[in-house]
Design a protein around this nucleic acid. Sequence first.
DNA 1: CGCACGGTTGAAGCGGCTCAATCTGGGTGG
DNA 2: CCACCCAGATTGAGCCGCTTCAACCGTGCG
Lengths: 204, 204
Amino acid sequence: MPGPVFVVLDGWAIRYKILPGGSRQIISFLMPGDFCDMHVAVLTEMDHSIATLSDATIVTIPRHQMEALTEIRPALARAFWWTQLVDEGVLRATIVSMGRRTSLERVAHLLCELSFRMRNIGIATDDHCEMPFSQIVLADAVGLTPVHVNRVVGRLRRAGALEVTAGTLIVASLSRMVEIAGFDDNYLHRRLKRIGANSTGQHM
Amino acid sequence: MPGPVFVVLDGWAIRYKILPGGSRQIISFLMPGDFCDMHVAVLTEMDHSIATLSDATIVTIPRHQMEALTEIRPALARAFWWTQLVDEGVLRATIVSMGRRTSLERVAHLLCELSFRMRNIGIATDDHCEMPFSQIVLADAVGLTPVHVNRVVGRLRRAGALEVTAGTLIVASLSRMVEIAGFDDNYLHRRLKRIGANSTGQHM
DNA sequence: CGCACGGTTGAAGCGGCTCAATCTGGGTGG
DNA sequence: CCACCCAGATTGAGCCGCTTCAACCGTGCG
């Protein structure tokens, strides 16, 4: 298994793909603490790209070290395994959002997901989740036009759920955002509950 | 790790989620040979459902047996690992499709993916891939209305890429479909190349 | 100062949705 | 064997959400 594993320590990163026409689709967000196993590099060619949003510090862990670690501490192997399962859950949730939610719900849902994840790692509170990216990035993530995202963002702001400055979005009321999105943190709770439980060695 | 692993032997299945409003989004298709590890059941509650399309035969492998297998034959563990990576790649491709492709491309792209996967397991050829599901199912998979999917299907048929009968769709010309979809089988080739290579024990 | 980029807003066009009707083949009860 | 029924396919008409095009503004920066 060639290729190292990456971990985001500070700053944000995204997985994305540029289509022949030039448009970009952001597939997922990586925030501090997230593993960015370049799975894909393990296979053949990469089918998508990874980039950082503004400055970020990324740690590299050589693959052999990784394997040594998981061999010594099986609990780690399980933790990694779970991490991947959760990531898959997030991807599935994204598909559901893109397929069957209105633009308002879709934007709100994404902001909720990111807010919850930020809260979980302690870089946000219920009334202040600061997302360090532009509305353009948001647009490429939810599959809409920057122009239309801007209008949606306006609605969220007028609803008192969001605040906006150039280059960053701030979720000012998670509860309101959750309500608008019809957000069910089930699939993320899992991330918490199990990874937390697992780290104490209760399972298997 | 509770919960058995499932393998589809015959027939098709889908992962899907029903939203509060009653609409359904199909997340992925499972065809013969596909593992349907109920990952999620391993975690807490399921965040989506699985169902078969028409009759199907599913094999159940108890978890402990699975673990015994992978212990005896590490190559199997790697194969499962890869399978999961590939599945993730498919999910990512789906997200890209839903976000940035037109309805025509989107439908064609899905049909291409399924056709290639069917060809890979030997249940279809370049000019005859028979999909055992209705346009309604297709609609729920690509995030469109049955009515509109029907119009798109009409266009594909008039382009000579597709044939339609009640309850089944037949890709009559993969090459034409690929052209319409702008399909790049890269992310699936991987499935072939690597899993094939892996089974010979070349890696790691 | 001027430029570039992100945000904001308006107007017009189009793609996909909704509503609704018709058609078809297959399955059912009589 | 026939009348009936139903799900899926098909087609038309009108509506609405999102895109496109096109301004204009504010701000950070070379």
